[in-house]
Nucleic acid binder design. Structure first.
Length: 865
RNA sequence: GCCGGGAUGGCGGAACUGGUAGACGCGCCGGACUCAAAAUCCGGUUCUGGCGACAGAGUGUGGGUUCGAUUCCCUCUCCCGGCACCA
């Protein structure tokens, strides 16, 4: 054994061993119970960053741990390879997205390999490969047949200068990132997936996902947002009838039908048909509708913008009193949600209250709070106004509890055909059309004679041409006749191919199934998926808590209903890793464009941030997730080259528990390296003292017994920390303590060496999932023939854990005053007497009468005086 | 704005079910080794007072429950994630 720890040599040797024996190639039915361990696959942005290292190390630790516990482990890896950054890179460098993406994949794969992850690379997939995305297309056609996929219009960000659709990310303060032009909303036809048809099931099944963090389940439940309420139709008054050209009614949805008699205005979206009709004869209104059309489609922007509204001069009639209620156009009402209209009840809804206050609309209180006594609803808004209570001034419904009033009003509305109880979800259908090049083509053909015609299965995949280079003005597919021009599959006439591509969330909604059916040319999934699925442990960033995970749950159910898989839920257990954060710095360029700078290139000078290169200031934009678009990623490559993969892995796992977000800093990386070197030296020193003795643990002296106890305590703790708690940082800390104990033991005699050896072996075995390379070498050095990866996980020896004496803390009135040592398992009266006799405690008891003594076994005694 | 999460020494963090606050590591200070430096090893390190034994304070803010609160409840502040076309 070398005296010096040489990470590069050690890591090459270990990786060669694993590779040459195909240790991580998973086979269906081999070994014990299956364990499918999956980390979210990366977008191939160019280089790994520390968030990836964190994510994949967590997965690898669990995969290797379970391997040692005898499970048949599958840990695959692939590439979420379609998406916007490839198009941006193409615009910047003139390189086709396909080439850029494949080069990135090659580089990042080398990086992943150098980190020594126990991945079955035979199952690797990239979503930009036709062999993969043909099944997106195939399933989309099945959804179309079943009515799960359908076409309707949707709103997009339109850049009028570039004549192109922008992603939300490309809209900065309402302007296009390249052109700086004011963005408009534009309605275009798109394809949608009917996820709302599964809303109830997706919500209900959350209860059964016990292996998921509560916070994720809560977020999903809130996102689906089931509310039971009432649909109410307000018949048009004569003026509205006239403008709309026919009699009708304005429909709204409300959860507070009990406040119906307090409705003093109606608010409709700018795109609502009544708003459009009214705008035709009112220039001011037309200008306002136009203003609403500009600006962001993002909910966060809509929710924070100043709430504006304008009266239409038109009215509806109250369904019970017949009183006229004026219709307003409001910028906070969204056409895409509910009916695109809400009833305004200022007395009992905070947002309506503010709106009414600003526009001088009447406030009519119709519910009296049960607890808070208030006579009248007056500014400022208080919480009690919005509470349930007893209805007043509500005609025949007065004097009811709110809950009863909702039911009574709904029943009466239904009787009159003016409404009914209804369930409303916040969740909207999933729009999957993207007006972009680098994605999976939607397999449809538009024929002037036959309409929208699906591409026949036999013609799949519709291949994406890979040589195009986008220039920022629209989708290059639309300008490529070889792609667009085609024959109609039905009539054979000239037709145009659909040029929209699919949302990349489609790609990631089922990749975990394809890993389990890798290489099948004839089917999307096969029986192997039934063996491996569901994923036993899924690991990924908390930023995916809603969209990706919800879409995957939905897609899996669609495949279940098509009898392609047998599971309902794709992921049995979920670990949501916290973000790795770094500072964000940028400079404003032309248009709305910002160029970002890596924090490593920025320094603080006289209290401001400047670029080291030119000394000019940059704007600090807080902390954020490491990402390519913000330029704040940290490449692990230097770390691996300088200290090795084991140090990088150990440091990352030691820095914080996995679920916690983490501000990046490489302070402390020396500590991780130092620990590995200390462990190496400890093993080296022990084995160089001569042959390792066979242990007789029955005749140990006190320090040796103490070390043995520590060894087995540590083993139990590390097993629990890795296997149950997933707190790798505390597992590592415990192993460090054990090493501190092991190097202090006297090894001049055989018994001491035996106890030290046992301690070192426990460290090597239990840390092997985290630092697999160095432990692979050390295991051999400790005299073992068999490779560490083939060893089972060790069991603690209960006999080693026994102790005769325990130390208890003595408190007086809850304050720590002293310590006593008593026999383990001593009866309460003995413990009590010892505590009352403790010198320092006695000073604080000071002859006062003892009112109570609380004994927490093995921990403390609290004397209350 | 809405939904979810977080805040503990100079720094990362520990305290798992309400029971010793600060494990482990970094940094820093002192010492050993060295011609010297690096590396390594030993000791110290929440703050205040005290030579010390020890005492007082202390887990973002303000309140509450409890014999006892970092942990439970309420209020506020700041930070992070998501908000449907970043992935």
């Amino acid at each position: 054994m070398d005296e010096r720890y040489d990470p590069a040599r050690v890591e090459r040797a270990a990786q060669d061993y694993w590779d040459s024996r195909q240790v991580f190639a998973a086979r269906e039915g081999a070994r014990g119970e299956k364990y499918y361990c999956l980390s979210m696959f990366p977008y191939p942005s160019g280089r790994l960053h520390m968030g990836h290292v964190r994510n994949y190390t967590i997965g690898d630790v669990l995969a290797r741990f379970m391997h040692m516990r005898g499970r048949n482990v599958l840990q695959p890896m692939g590439w979420d390879a379609f998406g916007l950054p490839a198009e941006n890179a193409a615009m910047a460098n003139g390189v086709p997205p396909a080439q850029w993406t494949r080069e990135n994949i090659a580089y990042m794969k080398r990086q992943l390999r150098s980190l020594g992850f126990a991945i079955d690379w035979e199952r690797e997939i990239a979503t930009c490969d036709p062999d993969y995305y043909r099944w997106n297309q195939w399933l989309f056609l099945r959804m179309l047949e079943k009515g799960i996929a359908y076409k309707k219009t949707g709103v997009v960000n339109w850049d009028p200068v570039d004549q192109t659709v922008l992603a939300n990310e490309q809209v900065i303060d309402g302007r296009g990132w390249r052109t700086g032009a004011l963005i408009e909303k534009r309605e275009i036809p798109m394809y949608y997936l009917r996820i709302t048809a599964y809303a109830d099931e997706l919500l209900g099944a959350l209860d059964g996902l016990e292996g998921w963090p509560d916070r994720v389940r809560t977020m999903q439940a809130n996102w689906i947002g089931k509310s039971v309420g009432c649909e109410i139709a307000f018949p048009y008054a004569d003026d509205t009838n006239e403008v709309m050209g026919a009699a009708g009614a304005l429909k709204v949805f409300t959860t507070r039908a009990d406040t119906l008699f307090g409705a003093t205005f109606m608010a409709i979206a700018a795109e609502h048909p009544i708003a459009l009709a009214a705008a035709q004869r009112d220039a001011k209104l037309a200008a306002f509708v136009d203003e609403c059309r500009r600006g962001s489609t993002m909910e966060a922007d809509v929710a924070t913008q100043e709430k504006k509204g304008l009266p239409t001069g038109l009215h509806v009639r109250h369904p019970f009193t017949g009183a006229p209620i004026e219709i307003w156009v409001a910028n906070y009402v969204l056409m895409g949600y509910g009916e695109g209209a809400v009833m305004g009840v200022p007395a009992h809804d905070e947002r309506d209250f503010e709106f009414a206050g600003r526009h001088g609309i009447a406030i009519v209180g119709v519910v009296k709070s049960r607890r808070g006594a208030y006579d009248q609803v007056v500014a400022p808004w208080i919480h009690a106004y919005g509470e349930y209570g007893i209805t007043v001034d509500s005609g025949e419904f007065s004097g009811l509890e709110s809950e009863a009033a909702v039911d009574a009003i709904a029943a009466k509305l239904e009787e009159r055909g003016l409404g009914a109880k209804r369930v409303q979800f916040r969740l909207r259908d999933w729009g999957i059309s993207r007006q972009r090049y680098w994605g999976c083509p939607i397999p449809l053909i538009h024929c002037p004679a036959c309409g929208d015609v699906p591409v026949p299965d036999a013609d799949l995949p519709v291949r994406l041409p890979e040589h195009l280079v986008p220039d920022g003005s629209g989708n290059p597919l639309a300008k490529t006749p070889e792609f667009v021009d085609c024959a109609c599959p039905k009539c054979g006439g000239a037709a145009r191919r659909e040029t929209d591509t699919m949302d990349t969330f489609v790609d990631s909604s089922w990749y975990f199934l394809r890993f389990a059916s890798a290489g099948n040319d004839h089917a999307m999934v096969d029986g192997r998926a039934d063996y491996w699925l569901p994923v036993d442990q899924y690991i990924g960033g908390i930023e995916h808590a809603i969209l990706h995970l919800l879409y995957s749950r939905f897609w899996t159910r669609v495949m279940r209903d098509l009898e392609l898989v047998k599971i309902d839920e794709p992921f049995a257990r979920l670990l949501t890793q916290g973000m790795v954060l770094n500072h964000i710095y940028y400079r404003q360029e032309g248009g709305a464009r910002r160029s970002y700078f890596n924090p490593a290139d920025v320094e603080q000078r006289d209290g401001r941030s400047v670029l080291i290169l030119d000394g000019e200031p940059v704007v600090h934009d807080g902390l954020g997730t490491m990402s390519k678009s913000k330029g704040n990623g940290v490449d692990p490559q230097k770390l691996v080259e300088e200290f090795g993969a084991d140090t990088a892995r150990l440091f990352m796992m030691f820095a914080a528990p996995p679920e916690q977000s983490l501000e990046w800093s490489d302070e402390g990386v020396h500590g991780a390296f130092r620990f590995i070197r200390r462990l190496w030296k400890a093993v080296h020193d022990l084995v160089s003292q001569g042959p390792l003795p066979v242990a007789d643990f029955a005749t140990l002296d006190a320090p040796q017994r103490a070390l043995r106890r520590l060894t087995h305590q540590t083993l139990a703790k590390v097993t629990d920390d890795i296997g149950r708690r997933h707190t790798f940082n505390t597992a590592i800390a415990a192993a460090m303590e054990l090493l501190n104990g092991a190097v202090r033991i006297d090894t001049s005699e055989a018994a001491g060496r035996a106890v030290a050896r046992e301690a070192l072996e426990v460290i090597v075995l239990t840390l092997s999932p985290i630092i697999p390379h160095v432990t692979h070498a050390l295991w051999h050095a400790l005299g073992h023939e068999r490779a560490l990866i083939e060893e089972p996980w060790p069991q603690p020896d209960p006999a080693a854990l026994e102790r005769e004496l325990v130390e208890l803390v003595v408190q007086v009135n809850g304050k720590l005053r002293g310590r006593i040592t008593v026999a383990a398992g001593a009866p309460d009266d003995v413990v009590r007497a010892a505590a009352l006799a403790e010198d320092n405690a006695r000073k604080f008891i000071n002859d006062a009468p003892v009112r109570k003594v609380i004994i927490v076994p093995g921990k403390l005694v609290n004397v209350v005086v």
